[in-house]
Amino acid sequence: MKSSRSITTILLVTLFLAFFLGSASAQEPVELQWLLIKFWPEYDDPSLLVIIDGELATPGSELRIPLPADAELNAVATAESSGRLLVNDWREETTADGKRILVFSPQFPVFRVEYYTPLAINGDQRIVDFELPAGYLSTNEANIEALLPPSSKDIELDPPADEQGPTQDEVHLFQRTVGEVKDQAIRQKITYVNASGALTVPETASSSGALLQPTPPPAEETQDKTATGITGNPWILLLGVAALLLIVGGAVGLWLTRETDENEALPAASPAPKIKRKKRSASTTIRASQSNLDRYCRNCGREFGPDDRYCRYCGAKRQTVP
Rank of each mutant, 00 (worst) to 15 (best):
A205N: 13
V201Q: 05
K225T: 08
A242N: 06
N263E: 15
I230F: 10
E203P: 00
G229V: 02
R298T: 06
R287V: 05
K274H: 01
P306D: 12
E221R: 15
G209W: 10
T228P: 00
N299F: 10
E262L: 13
L256D: 08
A272F: 00
A269C: 03
Q319T: 06
L293R: 13
P202K: 07
E264Q: 11
Y313N: 03
L266Q: 14
G229F: 09
P217E: 12
A198P: 03
R318M: 01
R287S: 12
G229Y: 05
S206P: 00
R298S: 15
R295H: 11
A198I: 01
S270Y: 03
P234D: 12
G315W: 00
G209F: 13
K279E: 15
L199Y: 06
R295D: 13
T215A: 11
G253H: 09
S283K: 14
L238W: 12
Y313P: 00
A198S: 12
L254Y: 12
L256W: 01
D308Q: 03
Y296P: 01
N263K: 14
G232K: 02
R298A: 14
N299K: 13
L237R: 11
L239C: 04
P217L: 06
S208R: 00
T257D: 08
P271R: 10
G240F: 08
L238C: 02
I236S: 05
T260C: 01
G240L: 15
A288G: 12
G232Y: 06
A205G: 14
P306Y: 13
R295G: 05
A219E: 14
A282L: 12
I230Y: 08
A205W: 05
Q213E: 14
A272D: 00
E303P: 04
R309W: 03
N292I: 10
R287H: 04
G305T: 02
G301N: 10
L239P: 00
L199P: 10
I236E: 04
K278E: 14
T228H: 13
T260F: 01
T200L: 15
A243H: 07
D294I: 03
Q223I: 12
G232A: 07
G249D: 05
E264R: 15
N292A: 15
R277G: 08
L211E: 12
E220Q: 15
A269G: 00
G250H: 05
G250R: 06
G315N: 00
T260R: 10
G250V: 03
G232L: 06
A205F: 08
A198M: 07
E259D: 11
Y313D: 01
V252L: 15
A316V: 00
T228I: 04
L212K: 09
R287G: 02
L254F: 14
L245K: 02
R318C: 01
P217R: 05
A282T: 04
L266F: 08
L239Y: 09
N292E: 15
T231P: 02
D261L: 11
T200M: 07
S270W: 02
T200Y: 04
